[in-house]
Structure formats: C-alpha cells, structure tokens
C-alpha cells in the first residue's frame, strides 16, 4: 500500500513539473516575425470556403487569401500550419504558431487565453438539415428538441452548450461534437443527427457539395464578427494587424474576396 502511494506521488509530481514547463514569452511576436522574415499562421483547412485544399492540393480560401495579403503588407513570407481546429488556440498560446485565422468568432473563454484582432468580416449561424426534414424554426431555441451536431470548440458549440443544454432545454446526450464540420455533415445525411448548427458560409458550401441538404434558419447566435487570433497581451502585434485590416477594408479588398468566395 505504501509503495503504490509513493508511486502515485511521483507520478503527480512529474505531471506538475511538466505542466510547469509551459513557459511565458516576454517579447513581442512581431519582432520575431520581422527578424525571421516569416510569419507562421495556423489554420484548419477543412472549412470551405474559409479555408480548404483546392484541386492542386494547395491551401486556399477566403481567410487564406486575406492572410496572404496581410503577410505581403507586413513584408514577410507566410508559412501555413494546418491542424485540427480545436488545437489552434493552444498552438497560439504555446507559441507554436504566431497567429491563427480560421473563421474565429469572439468568445470570452477564448479571450482568456488569446487576443483578437479587429473584426475582418461578419458571419452568421445556420441550421442545416436534410431535404426531407419537415420541422420549422421560428425561434432558434426551438432547435433544442432535435438531435444536434456541432464542430467542437466553435462558438456554435458554445451556443448549444450554454443556451440549450445548460439552460435545461436539451439533454447533453442529444449533442454530438465533431472534430470537423464535414464529419457532422455525413452524420446529418445518415440520420445520426437531425440538425447541424454551423457557420452559414461553410453550411452553404456543404449544400453545394452534397446537393441534398437545406438551411431552415439563419441568424446571429454567438456569431458575429470573425477575427484573427493573436497571442495574449501582444499589443504591438495586434496594432500592426489591425492597421492592415483597416487598410484592406478601406480599399474594398475584403469585400471583393467575399464576392469571390461567398457568392452562390
């Protein structure tokens, strides 16, 4: 008995040591970017048309082209790092990437760990269902009666969790969280879930791809402006990014991109 206790203590101590190794960065990432001549940007290229891989296997999309322009204006080379969506925040926190653009909506939870640039676009939510679906939604809370799917770590996930489950309108067992939105779309088609709550733009892209789904509700729940995610407390970097975003908005660059990627 005593031996296993010592063992357990050792394990916990080791774990604490490891956790303590997560260090803090002092200087601005902007300096590092300027010195090295490149900016490492994280994204999750499974979210058309914001970010996805094209026929040639290249990462492209609305967010992608926007970021490429920003890098150009910063005068540095852009290095893309693709990873699952819910790893991105941690990656920015730990300095594995300098920033991330991946259709991020603001949320208080995220704000505790990272910073946000000014908004570069606005998004909306959509409820995606199969063609055969007969229900109607006049109030978003009505969706609580169905089996719902969301991409994990998104604001849609937050909304369902807070407004429906925590509020007691819906049992947790009716929510399925997916690593990627296309996985959710598959389950939607197979009937494992009734409604997919996602950002309206990728939802429309999915409809185009599958040809057998429809949207029964659009509106702003927890969505709204989308921002670039930046390291916490890095004022210099944030000011630089915001400056460029403002420029691009003023020039109509972003509007043109929206037309390119979001017109149906």
């Amino acid at each position: 008995m005593k031996k296993s206790l010592i063992f357990l203590v050792l394990v916990v101590l080791t774990a604490a040591l490891i956790a303590g190794c997560a260090g803090q960065k002092a200087e601005s990432v902007l300096d590092k970017i300027k010195t090295s001549g490149k900016v490492v940007v994280g994204t999750s290229a499974d979210y058309a048309p914001y970010e996805f891989v094209d026929d040639a296997g290249k990462i492209t999309g609305f967010d992608v082209e926007l970021m490429e322009e920003i890098a150009k204006r910063m005068g540095v080379e852009l290095v893309w790092t693709d990873m699952p969506f819910d790893s991105l925040i941690a990656a920015v926190q730990e300095g594995k990437i300098d920033m991330s653009i991946s259709c991020f909506n603001y949320s208080e939870e995220r704000d505790a760990q990272v910073d946000f640039s000014d908004a570069y676009y606005t998004s909306e939510d959509a409820f995606l269902v199969t063609e055969a679906f007969t229900g109607t939604i006049t109030d978003p809370l009505q969706v609580a009666q169905y089996k719902i799917g969301v991409q994990s770590g998104t604001v849609q996930d937050d909304w369902v969790t807070t407004e429906l489950i925590d509020a007691g309108l819906m049992p947790e067992s009716n929510l399925s969280r997916y690593e990627r939105v296309d996985q959710a779309a598959l389950d939607l088609q197979s009937g494992r879930i009734d409604v997919l709550v996602a950002d309206s733009v990728p939802a429309k892209a999915i409809i185009q791809q599958t040809g057998s789904l429809k949207i029964i509700y659009e509106g702003m729940l927890y969505t709204g402006p989308i921002n670039i995610v930046l390291p916490e407390g890095d004022t210099a970097l944030r000011e630089e990014i915001n400056k460029i975003i403002k420029e691009l908005q003023g020039e109509g660059f972003i509007d043109a991109l929206a037309v390119k990627y979001f017109s149906e």
Binding site: I18, A19, C21, A22, G23, Q24, T81, M83, S87, A90, A91, E94, G95, K96
Partner: peptide, 15 residues
C-alpha cells in the same frame, strides 16, 4: 499533446 503543447515552454519542438 504533452510533448507538443505542454512542454513547449522548455522544449520547443516542431509538430
């Protein structure tokens, strides 16, 4: 995850 995220303060490794 531990090696990549948690220990990145001490050891910064590429993915």
């Amino acid at each position: 995850f531990i090696l990549y995220f948690v220990m990145s303060g001490a050891i910064n490794l590429s993915p």
